[in-house]
Amino acid sequence: MDNMALEISNLSKKFDGFSLSNISFKVEKGSIMGFIGENGAGKTTTMKLILNAFERDGGEIKVFGLDNIQNEREIKQRIGYAADEDCLCIGSTLGAHAKAYAKIFKNWDEELFKKYVELWDLPLKKKLTDFSKGMKMKAMLALAFARRPELLLLDEPAAGLDPVARIELLDILRDFVADGERSVLISSHITSDLDKAADYITLIIDGEIAESEPLDILEEKYALISGSIDDLRGKEYELVGVRKGEMTFDALVLREKLKLFPGVAVHTPNLENILTFSIWGRRERRRKA
């Protein structure tokens, strides 16, 4: 338990037309957890439940071993948050936010804030309404890092960032967790970024956790196969997901089931393959059901 920054067990939340069911995963201290899934899968809702933005229907969320509702203030002092939506008062300036945050957050580091402001060339006196989407995200990241959090929750931080800033962000995140005490939960659609930076991956599909494993184990767990449609005959149900052409197919399969598909070409899947084939497979099974 002491080694866990975040521990979610059997979390559930129902909305009209959508529900999170039995969400369980853990984020170890000193690690980066990539949180992936298609739009509307429940990534943002899960992050907001961690911050007690929504009332959960069931389950448990422990941050640094503390219940997130009973210890809301303390936990939020130790969490940094940045999201692909306006979590800032956009009629105000970044400088005004920094001034307010300096009073609110006990671990506020003004020098660190200035460092990011200089790195990303952020204007302090310009209204946030005049910021581009990427600049707003950089502003949120600067404010999040300057809190000196122990856990960073980043919801689609790469959205709107230019490639240079994205690479810089990945480097910053690696440095951030390097001391083994701080952790990151990051959701992103840009899976190639997570391939480079994440230690663990949690895959959420339709409000349910499909996978939560170390990235290397996840990549070893599956194989990407391709071959002739005839190779699939009668065995399609053994696949995680498949994409068929007229004569050929590509599919994701558990490595332990590779022996069922002799003669097919086998590749190591990347994160994008695992994500997309898992979603396609789930959709296909739902359609058949």
Binding site: L51, A53, R73, E74, I75, K76, L88, C89, I104, F105
Partner: peptide, 16 residues
């Protein structure tokens, strides 16, 4: 919504 988005991640409880 804007107000909530601004506040919910700051270190305050609802009672505050």
């Amino acid at each position: 919504e804007d107000i909530r988005n601004y506040f919910f991640h700051l270190p305050f409880e609802f009672s505050d």
